[in-house]
Design a protein around this nucleic acid. Structure first.
Length: 412
RNA sequence: GGGGGGAUGCCCGAGUGGCCAAAGGGAGCAGACUGUAAAUCUGUCGGCGCUGCCUACGGAGGUUCAAAUCCUCCUCCCCCCA
């Protein structure tokens, strides 16, 4: 690349690390160089629909990418899709999305911004809502939008195509979504739009729309979808395989520890902000057996926890984890509770009911199964009899353990 | 507008009158093992103090000793033709 300064090349390398697509080829590099020459920052757009109240680490992957632009002096344009949330993005969906109410959307938007602040410098973010420009659109403008593409092109898209072929519903409304998202790019005059790989179609549609509006079509960058703690499906609250940015430190640490080993390197790459050279070093040391997987995962968990809390808290979470799970030290801070009145019948406490009442089991039946499987301990003694009747007095101060990680102490 | 197909447990998906609380897989949970809440293996997986009872196979009725399975109507979805 003649005439492009080394530090721009280095910035470019940093930006594309972790990305799946950066299109068109070299466009980003040209823009970075141009921005340098013109002393004008680029406008990097990220649109998010406030469809869920909590954000998890999966959402932070693209936020971190946006934050990188921000750190390089470019403008992070964060669009809250309060209008598009009502339409519902069909991306990756096999079903129609439920439409959200205004109240839900606005509440979600608020918490989203709060949580995004853990990754982005919100002081410098250009924060806008797309209802500002989408809501007043006139019908003739909408029709102009619908004419920029064709049904055939819409149906090229994977999720539409598969739904179409699997006899699953696609509403016309859903066709509007990519067009509206593209119109957002027109409204904010985006140089670059970021998104997950599932957004590729929408991002490319943004280029089509921008062209139709006589704007220089944006560059697009996609980041991988983060695989959740189960190791197979994308991280999502509905799959229950997520790590929330608001999770308690011990929980966050523990959840990272529960990921399959194969996920360690992707997590280092996408979630830690650690440079790509360092990640490569970690990966090769792991592969050569110079870095113990358990140690690597602890370091990862500590690193991630530290990004959302202080390094002291993260280190405490590590110590806590080691004591409770590795060293099986039961004596650490376990919450205390009284015996619920509903558990005491005729002066006796029937163990399965107690476990169910304390939410340590979903039902009496489940509690009985847990006992039968040897998963219930009272003060470290495995309980074997599901019909155990206990005196309330004898339970005072007793540590109840269900499975490996659920503990509760009865108040003395 | 006409014709045809479909809706099953958290998810996917078998089941076309009794042996069905419903195969199989996934997720979840537990145990063993360990490097950890990885991996692997085993068990479990609607509720009820449970050799039985209750609730459940889109919704409401009906037939039958007996219905996820048959009939009627309704809701929603898909396909084909126009």
């Amino acid at each position: 690349m003649a005439g492009i300064p080394d530090d721009i090349l280095e910035q470019h390398q940093d930006l594309i690390t972790g990305c799946v697509d950066v299109l068109p080829a070299d466009d980003l590099l040209q823009r970075l160089a141009w921005a340098r020459e013109q002393k004008r920052p680029l406008r990097a757009k990220l649109g998010v629909d406030p469809t869920a109240p909590d954000i998890h680490l999966g959402h932070t992957v693209v936020l971190r990418k946006l934050a990188q632009f921000q750190k390089m002096g470019h403008i992070a344009v964060l669009i809250i899709g309060d209008y598009t949330a009502k339409v519902g993005d069909p991306s990756g969906r096999s079903k129609l999305r439920p439409r959200l109410s205004e109240e839900e959307i606005s509440a979600n938007a608020t918490t989203y911004v709060e949580q995004a602040a853990k990754v982005l410098d919100m002081e410098k973010v250009e924060l806008v809502r797309n209802s500002d420009w989408l809501s007043p659109l006139r019908m003739d403008e909408v029709l102009r939008l619908t004419s920029v593409t064709t049904v055939a092109r819409m149906l090229e898209r994977d999720d539409f195509a598969s739904r179409y072929h699997n006899n699953e519903p696609i509403s016309i409304l859903e066709f509007m979504y990519p067009l509206l998202q593209g119109y957002d790019s027109v409204a904010v005059k985006a140089d670059i739009e970021l998104g997950g790989t599932d957004q590729k179609f929408n991002l490319l549609m943004g280029r089509t729309v921008m062209e139709a509006y006589a704007l220089n079509p944006q560059s697009i960058m996609t980041v991988p979808l983060l695989v959740g703690t189960d190791g197979s499906m994308k991280m999502s609250k509905t799959y229950g395989n997520y790590i929330g940015v608001n999770d308690e430190p011990n929980d966050m640490f523990g959840k990272v520890m529960s990921i399959p080993d194969d996920l360690m390197v992707p997590y280092w790459t996408l979630l830690t902000g650690v440079g790509h050279r360092e990640v490569e070093a970690i990966a090769s040391r792991l592969q050569r057996g110079e870095y113990h997987p358990a140690a690597c995962k602890r370091d990862l968990a500590e690193r991630i926890t530290g990004l959302y809390y202080s390094t002291e808290v993260a280190s405490a979470a590590r110590t806590h984890f080691d004591r409770v799970f590795r060293d099986r030290d039961r004596s650490v801070d376990v919450s205390e509770t009284a015996i619920p009145a509903s558990s005491v019948i005729e002066g006796k406490v029937w163990l399965p009911r107690l476990l169910a009442d304390l939410k340590l089991a979903g039902s009496n039946g489940e509690a009985k199964r847990l006992i039968a499987q040897g998963g219930v301990r009272l003060d470290d003694v495995v309980m074997k009899d599901a019909n155990e009747e206990l005196e309330p007095g004898a339970l005072k101060g007793v540590l109840i353990q269900v499975g490996k990680r659920r503990f509760l102490r009865i108040k003395a």
